[in-house]
């Protein structure tokens, strides 16, 4: 348990250094509901980065990169944005029937360069677009690697739809076998994960039920995608779950050590499991 924790902490520390936005600890978005009915439907989303799920006790999730898409693929407005000390919050007006995607996707570059005999890290927030201005004149031996981080949730008005699940082919993406808004305690759900558009074999998948503050055991499930990128999850009880997929980290890294310049990707979603 402890070992796992420090392993995770090390990952977190590295993630912080490579400047995945709101990187430390566990980041999440929490919708007011995922299964909705009605004619004038709104969802309110809390977004934070915290240790315990799902309590806002550390940092708000920055909303700069948060976007939402309607079932027909059109982008919809993020309304009533607010970022407080511990959490951000916003609303989405769900005017169509079907499944919406709300996502914060970060496409960054991590890397290093040599200047005046010293190796320097690329600063936080470096992207392919601003790389040229981030690397000082005279720098040599520039190394970069892509870091893609996707944090997304799904909410459905009426019948679940899958029109929004066409992969973009970058980072880790979820393809429903079981629809993420059709989850019931005791029923197994299957999701397929893609890495850069291809089935992602042998990726570690972590599933943690919310409500950590009021129990002793984390209750996490450590799963792994199969050769086809698929993973099956059984939900022991109804509630909100945090699901995290991350490309495996190199062996032997220690906390505080600089991250290797290697391509990486992570995926986070919050899933609501209803009672039978």
């Amino acid at each position: 348990m402890k070992k796992q924790f420090w392993g995770f902490a090390a990952t977190v520390a590295l993630a912080a250094m490579i400047a995945v936005p709101a990187s430390a600890h566990r980041q999440w978005m929490m919708p007011s509901a995922t299964v909705l009915s009605g004619d004038d439907v709104w969802v309110t989303v809390d977004a934070a980065v915290s240790n315990d799920l799902f309590y806002f006790e550390h940092q708000p999730l920055r909303l700069d990169a948060v976007k939402a898409w309607a079932p027909d693929g059109t982008e919809v407005t993020i309304e009533n944005k607010s970022t407080g000390r511990y959490r951000s919050t916003f609303d989405v007006h769900l005017t169509q029937k079907g499944t919406y995607r709300i996502a914060s996707v970060a496409d960054m570059l991590l890397g290093s360069y040599d200047l005046n005999g010293k190796t320097e890290r690329l600063p936080r927030g470096t992207t392919a677009a601003n790389l040229a201005e981030r690397v000082p004149a005279g720098a040599t031996n520039v190394k970069t690697a892509e870091a893609n981080n996707r944090n997304e949730i799904f909410v459905t008005v009426g019948e679940p739809t899958t029109t929004l699940f066409k992969p973009v082919g970058k980072g880790i993406e979820l393809v429903p076998v079981t629809h993420p808004n059709d989850l019931i305690a005791g029923e197994a759900a299957t999701f397929q994960f893609l890495l850069d558009g291809k089935p992602a074999a042998d990726l570690p998948v972590t599933v943690i039920p919310g409500g950590i503050r009021y129990r002793d055991q984390l209750g996490e499930q450590h799963l792994q995608t199969g050769a086809d990128g698929k993973v099956s999850v059984t939900w022991p009880e109804a509630g909100m779950y945090w699901l995290n997929v991350i490309t495996p980290q190199p062996e032997g890294m220690t906390e505080g050590a600089p991250p290797p310049i290697a391509k990486r990707a992570s995926y986070v979603t919050t899933l609501e499991v209803l009672a039978p």
């Binding site: 299964v35 009915s37 009605g38 004619d39 004038d40 009426g158 059709d182």
Partner: peptide, 22 residues
């Protein structure tokens, strides 16, 4: 007003999943 009562139909949750949501 505005058919607001439909907002809570999903609370009849097994029916909503089986048939109501369509």
């Amino acid at each position: 007003q505005k058919n607001e009562g439909t907002k809570w139909l999903r609370d009849v949750r097994q029916w909503w999943r089986a048939s109501g949501r369509t």
